[in-house]
Amino acid sequence: MANAREVQLRIKSVKNIAQVTRALQAVSASRVRKAMERMFNTRPYATKAWQVLTHVAKQPGRQSLHPLLTERKEENGIIVIMLSGDRGLAGAYNTNILKATLDAFAKHPVPVRFISVGRKGTELLHRRGMDIMAEFTDLPPEPSFNDVSAIGRLAVDEFLEGKVDSVYLMYTDFVNMVRQDPINKKLLPLEIESSSGLVEAEFSESTGPSAAYVYEPGQTEILDEIVPRFTALQIFQATLESLASEHASRMVAMQNATDNATELAGLLQLEYNKARQLGITSDILDIVGGAEALAKTK
């Protein structure tokens, strides 16, 4: 059995760790609340915007409506936008999104280029030898639409120039505090069947969204305005979802770490007590033995 002093040192370090993880847990708890609030506030707009886009894309003759909605005959290259965190210690958050991304795209038949958001994800992609065309790190803790619009613009530009034929978005959908799911969403050209995650389009049956729209002022003007913006908006919403997921995931991970550390400290304390008791017993034995030996010599 380890001696009492060694055990005491370990108890001390375990308690230190528990203190740190508890602090991180508290920080994440307050961040996740803020992030969730923002995410829920913008969800209605993002959902409706996506619905409008799907309605537009469902019209007959969508191929000629707008370049961003046009499906290309063949796929020669794709872009994958992956949203991850800048920091670790968030449980499986970063590895989950990476795993989902690699599962979906590592063996893709055409060249895949990545736009990576978040330092951790970038590192992980780099290590796997993926082709990263751009990385965005150090987003502000509460990103605004303008902070992320550059990401969308980059993807849209590449798509319009014909360098890639599809753009996918990998992000983490915030379901609740203990559940966050990696989502793979086709951003460009718009996938009508897409029915995953937050932006599930609910069609009213009676509407039959196949009827063509009347446009005011004109079809080109209005589609030019809304299609790129609503696409960028989906990235923005995905960023908020991912951010809330990251904080939630980190909070749960830190909570587990604190619990484990507390439990371990308890076990070590028992061990320390035993070692201490053992020490005392052997000390007493020594003294008694010594006293008896003295008595005998008298």
Partner: peptide, 11 residues
């Protein structure tokens, strides 16, 4: 806009 309006998209 009343009900049964034709589909319309406007800024």
């Amino acid at each position: 806009i009343l009900e049964k309006h034709a589909p319309l998209l406007s800024t």
